[in-house]
Structures are given as C-alpha cells and as structure tokens.
Design a protein around this nucleic acid. Structure first.
Lengths: 138, 138
DNA sequence: AATTTCTGTAACTAAAATAATTACATGTAT
DNA sequence: ATACATGTAATTATTTTAGTTACAGAAATT
C-alpha cells in the first residue's frame, strides 16, 4: 500500500487554502490531521521545495504559491513521493533463462503504462476539486 | 512502492506457460527468479487459490487452468495482493474540523478513481501479451 | 515397502519503509 | 529578552516484505 503522505498533504493544503486569512501553525494542522507537528513540517518542507507553498522559518503559517485550480494531485504526489516506480520488479533474475533474461524490461513497460494511467487520474484532479468535494460533503 | 509479488508471479506463470511439456519444480523456478523456493510455493499457493493454476502436493510441476489469453494481469494482481486499497489515508483526523471531518470520504473517492484507472490497464494486458513481449525481446 | 523428491505451510529472521517522537539550532515578533 | 515558531537531524516503534529453516505429508522410483 502506498504511504499516506499524499493524503496528509492534501489535507494540509486544503486547510491552508480554506483559511487564507489565518496563519496556521504546524501544531494546529497536526491537530486536524491528528499526528505530530514534525510530520506536518516535513511535508510542508517537501511541498515548499516543489513550489506549492511558501513558509517562513520562525513564522507561523504557510501561503499557497499557486491557485487551488492550478495545483493537481499529481503535483502533490510527486512532491512528497520519493519513489519513481510504483511497482517493484525482482532483481537479478537468471540471465541464462529466456524468461529471466527479458522479464524485467517487459514488466517495466507494462508497469509504466499502469502507472501513467494512475498518474493521469491524479493529474485530472486539482486542489480546487478536492475543496469543492469537502464543501459538498459538509 | 508496491511489492514485487505481481512481478514474480508473472515470471512464474510465464515460465510455466512457455514450457507446457516440462514439469518445473519450485526449486527450478526459484533459480530463474533468483529467490528461495518457498517464496515461489507461497505465490503458486495464492495463484492456485485464485484458480489460475493447478498443483499437486509432492508432485513436481504446475499446470495453467486457463489459457494465457484468458489470464489478465489484474487477475494475477488480485490473486497475490492482499490489500484492497492502493493508497493509505491517515486515520482519526479531527472530526471537529470541517476538513478533518470530510477528508477521508473525499480522498476515498479520488483514490478509488486512480486505482480503477491502474487496474483497467492491468486488466487490458494478458499473460499471452507478456509472453509475446518476452519472445520479441529475445 | 523403503527411499527419494517434491509440495504446502508454519515459524522465525533480516531488512526496509513508514510514522511518530525527541531534541535543538535558528528565525520572527513583541 | 522572551516567547513561540520553523527546519531538520536523530532515534524509536511498528509494519511490511522477503528470505530462510523446518517439517509433515503426497507422489514417484527403486
């Protein structure tokens, strides 16, 4: 199962976007997510590096650096997910075997297609869409 | 990253399908995959439960119970992957917060769409396709 | 029938990933 | 100066994954 960093990051960005007036501390956000403030700060660090938000050391609060309509879930996913490949492929299959020799490149192509399909869905949804759903669900 | 069980399972099934005459032991397959025979037997156990192959205790070799054209990668994936959900969502967000209260159901829908897109790709490719690619790559 | 060889499966170990936590240097505001 | 925040390193606990050992029992061979 993929880790929860995308889920928590969407939570963080939704909170910031829905309260543009308030400066929310990592501790406050952690209270909404129900985790440790350091977990939040690590994620905002990655989101800042990806250019999705701006923070100031020592100063409470974060600002989005793009409009919610411009932030896709794929951008968030890429910002906080270190792994390039979704599926693992076993290493060192036997090169003396016709299957072992070619299975990696074959699966590489297949898995890449599946991954791209997933990423296309993540790219089709923006933070604005998420906020709309959040508001509807209320 | 998703575990390598799908990759290894495709390897196993490709080997069996490409040598319908030979009875391959878990030890032989393990030699091609480059892992421990028990890892192979665990996977063939799951594949057998899913109705993709037949084995006999004490007797070497396994037989496919469907034609390679009928076995999709999604069937294999479902056979060896225990988790229902691809993405994790953080538990116990704060119900007193409008975002915390609704983030789970919102992300649940979003992640389900992404997962379905991935699974549709896995469903579109069969073991026969994989074997075709393996033969071409040689 | 005895032996060999295999599968199925439980139990254990090792390594890696994830999240939570502690600690602290440093920046900002009053 | 003090209070309070962020950024980040280091540590710990938990879970997942894969590899391994061990062995009961099925099948084939002699």
């Amino acid at each position: 199962m993929i880790n929860s960093r995308l889920a928590v990051s969407v939570h963080i960005l939704s909170l910031i976007a829905s309260h543009p007036d308030q400066a929310m501390s990592s501790e406050f956000i952690a209270g909404s997510v129900n985790t440790n403030p350091v977990v939040i700060r690590r994620l905002t660090g990655s989101l800042r590096q990806a250019g999705l938000l701006a923070t100031t050391a020592g100063k409470s609060g974060a600002m989005l650096t793009k409009r919610p309509e411009e932030i896709t879930l794929l951008m968030i996913y890429r910002a906080v997910e270190s792994k390039d490949n979704l599926f693992s492929i076993h290493e060192h299959p036997n090169p003396a075997c016709p299957v072992g020799r070619n299975i990696q490149s074959t699966l590489d192509n297949t898995f890449m297609r599946a991954q791209r399909a997933l990423e296309a869905e993540l790219e089709a949804e923006t933070l604005a869409d998420v906020m709309h759903h959040l508001a509807q669900a209320r």
